[in-house]
Design a protein around this nucleic acid. Structure first.
Lengths: 222, 222
DNA sequence: GTCTATAAATAGATAGAC
DNA sequence: GTCTATCTATTTATAGAC
């Protein structure tokens, strides 16, 4: 699921306790932990233990903790960017593309559950650990969103609006809610009301509806 | 500015390099750093250095790094909660209270710039470090928001909506945008388009407008 | 109240056996 | 490819002088 450019071939048959590729095990465990506790809050021992391996294996597959982290973020941003560019450049009208953009983000949050918390962290911290190539990927997502916004404005589907504020207003709820959901799912803690379950079916619809309301040119009230 | 329940008296006159109370210096430096780099990303030495003191002073004023962190979050949530409860219980109609609720959050983000990043981090991580008393404060803010929402629904000003999704949709953009702004202001990095300046005047208005559009009962489009 | 020096624990990273 | 044992640097926290 992590997906490097080309999936390496798997060794024939092997026993259960390490049947999946150890690199993927470490990758996934690390993504999970980094998103939950942050880069500094996660030890390489924690990662190795969660992957049911040891840290020597981590260093066998990755150069360093930082290199592993970067690979996770790059993989994630490549996935987001690919989807965003694809929908932004589709021939459909802007409102349909906006709806697809949001559906893509929500679906991606399910496929790569570490995406929302990790993305939030990177924005909050100002992405201090990312290399220039990865920063470009972050930019691409925003530019794709901006293109949808601009097209919508030109075709009269959307009202004029500051693209950054619009981006924050669309991305913020999606990321924050998914991150909240994820935090609530962790064992032990948190029976606060704001961490209660939200019916997953309503979610995409709400986010899409909210975005359309935000951008629609019709005035809503004084 | 951090504000314990009662501000202790200041010593008469003293030289510049440590004229302000050292406790407040450490408190503010720590809040700033914790919000920027997270709890684990911030060392007590970093804090002491930013406060132009040393870590022995930190331990003179606070029991531990964790105790200091908790005090910062508690102070922040007390401020948010007090403001939220005050506006939620005001006699005004719900839409006016919602607008005031948002203005309060934005104003608080200016007064205590560490609030948005810190709050985001706590939600993302599921508040694993907070003591029960502090968790209650988090709950109070949400409940105040919920009361405004419920009143608005009863009086026909708002449409029915899942309170958690509404909370995420109002809080998410405000926190994320303020955090983004703050990350962009840090020296060195980040000239990505999505980290560009947003005219501060537009900000509150946008957030208020967006929230009203989200909750208004009038249908906006199919 | 403020500092320097240091103890004790932890974390990232590597050597080398199997 | 996988593991244990270990080195080294960093980090929280404290002792004790001024």
């Amino acid at each position: 699921m992590p997906a490097r450019t080309a999936p390496r071939p798997r060794r024939a048959a092997s026993t259960r306790p390490a049947s999946r590729d150890s690199r993927d095990l470490i990758f996934t465990a690390a993504a999970e932990l980094f998103s939950a506790r942050g880069f500094d809050g996660t030890g390489v021992d924690d990662i190795a233990h969660a992957a049911r391996l040891n840290k020597a294996m981590l260093y066998y597959h990755f150069d360093s903790k930082l290199a592993l982290y970067r690979e996770i973020v790059r993989d994630m941003l490549r996935a987001v960017g690919a989807r965003a560019l694809h929908t932004a450049d589709s021939p459909e009208p802007a409102d349909a593309r906006l709806v697809a953009f949001i559906a893509g983000l929500v679906r991606l949050s399910d496929e790569r559950p570490w995406f929302p918390p990790l993305m939030l962290r990177e924005i909050v911290e100002g992405a201090p650990r990312l290399d220039p190539d990865t920063l470009v990927l972050m930019k691409d997502v925003f530019m794709a969103f901006g293109r949808i916004l601009g097209d919508g404005h030109r075709t009269g589907l959307f009202r004029p609006i500051n693209p950054i504020l619009a981006y924050m207003s669309v991305l913020g709820p999606i990321l924050l809610n998914a991150a909240r959901e994820r935090a609530a799912a962790r064992p032990g803690r948190l029976d606060l009301p704001m961490f209660a379950d939200v019916p997953h079916a309503d979610l995409t619809a709400h986010m899409q509806h909210a975005a359309l309301r935000l951008l629609s040119p019709e005035p809503t009230r004084a």
